[in-house]
Design a protein around this nucleic acid. Sequence first.
DNA 1: GGCAAACTTGCACGCAGTGCACGTTCGCGC
DNA 2: GCGCGAACGTGCACTGCGTGCAAGTTTGCC
Lengths: 208, 208
Amino acid sequence: MAEQAPQGRRERKKAATRAALASAALRLCSEHGVDQVTVEQIADAADVAPRTFFNYFTSKEEAVVAGNAVTAEILVDAFTGRPADEPVTESLRHALHAVVTDPGYLDRFMRLRALRTHPAVVAHHMAAYGAQERELAAAVVARTGTDPASDMFPTLAAAATVTALRVAVQHWLGDHGTDPREPELTQLVDEAMAVFEAGLPAATGVPV
Amino acid sequence: MAEQAPQGRRERKKAATRAALASAALRLCSEHGVDQVTVEQIADAADVAPRTFFNYFTSKEEAVVAGNAVTAEILVDAFTGRPADEPVTESLRHALHAVVTDPGYLDRFMRLRALRTHPAVVAHHMAAYGAQERELAAAVVARTGTDPASDMFPTLAAAATVTALRVAVQHWLGDHGTDPREPELTQLVDEAMAVFEAGLPAATGVPV
DNA sequence: GGCAAACTTGCACGCAGTGCACGTTCGCGC
DNA sequence: GCGCGAACGTGCACTGCGTGCAAGTTTGCC
């Protein structure tokens, strides 16, 4: 929804090139490792000159995590698509559902999983979460009509939502060993979001 | 508290070199801009060979945000220093106070503020927040004795705490314009943490 | 005193990333 | 259609990053 304008050929070609570069970067790097892939290879796979790569991204890492922009788009679209009189937290929970049930989301994430050990990629991945937070916060501001300069709620709500997603996914991927319950990702996201809705003390000690 | 062992000369020298490099990197880059500073200049300022820089950090950005490790240390130390029978959220709030009242913290943050426009620095800064979350989560696990593989609470509590810090600081720095209330950072941190304690819906619409 | 491990440093090399200039393509008004 | 200006792709050249390797030097330890 961010922009659906059926723009001219030039705009479409730019978007296609960007997507091709991002896709090629993620595929090649997840298969062979970030350090084993050169920008030239990525450019070749996207059928552009090496120099062109840098017209779209300033580094390999940026291209690898570029796909996360669509996550932000899904998040914001799903949120703004909810009824305006619905409680914000409920809309946010629905938005999270929209993300984790998107087939492309898990695909991208499984590829990114192989790159969890690469510091620079991890850093840019975190930056992508930050961008998602900002876009979602703007949507919350638009919904609630609050002034973000004096009210931290929209920022906090967006941050909590993205944090719930991040923690749930990282738990699901088994960063702390395998959960014996082996729950679905959807369930984990719900549990994480429920904690932020009920307040942290309510969840102290009890397995969420 | 992480490690206070009065180690041998070699260990102390390494720590001193690392600190000197990180400090020089932050100072030079905040004064002249990241792209205007070379690794050679940073190494010269720390009085080591350029090659030695890469024995400690793999990039300029990493060195610039290295100081955030002490934030994590303050956070964890303050948390573990609280009485074990205190509610976790209260200990976390005290830990946040310890961070924002640390004189070195604000100093580092004001320097980092000048670099908020540099994508790679921002990315590594976010990664530093992630590291703080992990260390704090480990401390919460140690306190509560829960199993992080089946219980997301420690991770969520740590993430919420670091998020409260991050959002409060970013609000304080005026990312959304200047707050007419011009509150103290301590107060903002309290407000943010209070939202996570009371639950998001309790804060909906009301200026926190 | 002497040995082994750890650290620093210089060297060399491949690649990242950018400014610049040129050719090409697209959008747009006539 | 026609042409003009702007935006884009590409090649070239250059600086600086980041790393493997092989020394030389310092430290810890017996």
